[in-house]
Amino acid sequence: MTILGAADSGPSCYSRFVNEWFCWQYVEDRHVQITDALVEHIAITLAALVLGIVIALPLALLARRLPRLESLVLGFSTGVYTIPSLALLPLLVPFTGLSAATVVIGLGLYALTILVRALLDGLRSVPDDVREAASGLGYGRARMLTRIEMPLALPVVMAGLRVAAVSTVALTTVGTLVAYGGLGDLISHGVQRDFRAELMTAAVLCVVLAVVLDVLLVLLQRVLTPWTAGTR
């Protein structure tokens, strides 16, 4: 490994002749480019997740009221899962063009389908006797939802959000098809130029980003639902 390769005067570890997989010199020399890609990756991921949450919440509440809508929503989500990401993005291009919005909407759609199911499962996991006790105490519909049902549904919802977050980080790389793939753009460039350090660095960063996001969500869940700490 040429982690200390900067010291000697030979070809750097990412030159065409050496082409090492891991090369710290590359990270130092191109840190601006890498940081830009990482920031774009994070921005697209978070935007897609927020979009998914914002649409999933009202949709899940509606679907809970109307059983017919629920089967429609679940059928639609199975359909969306089935379509490969590389095919979903081109289908959005006529509407949003070659922009970051295409990637955000596409990934938001995948996240949305996971989150709607998680919300429905979570709300269903609230015990009926708790609901009855709350209405006996005089809780109305809105207060019941925000004070009783949502907090109790949180563990299941957060599990869904973790799945959505981790898979969105990985899927963002496919956005390179429309040139908004964050770290995926580096991977794509690395493959075309046979530039191993570039594609390996981007791949490792993707996995690290997914793990970091997952850990942050676990911590958030601990803070939001302190009563589950003992049972996990």
């Binding site: 799945v163 981790v166 898979s167 980080v169 990985a170 899927l171 790389t173 496919v174 390179t176 995926g184 991977i187 794509s188 690395g190 493959v191 046979d194 191993r196 594609l199 390996m200 981007a202 791949a203 993707c206 996995v207 997914a210 793990v211 997952d214």
Partner: peptide, 15 residues
Amino acid sequence: GRAVPTFALLAILVA
């Protein structure tokens, strides 16, 4: 499996 991007693994195998 979910955290490793398909694209990244394919890229590594091809390179």
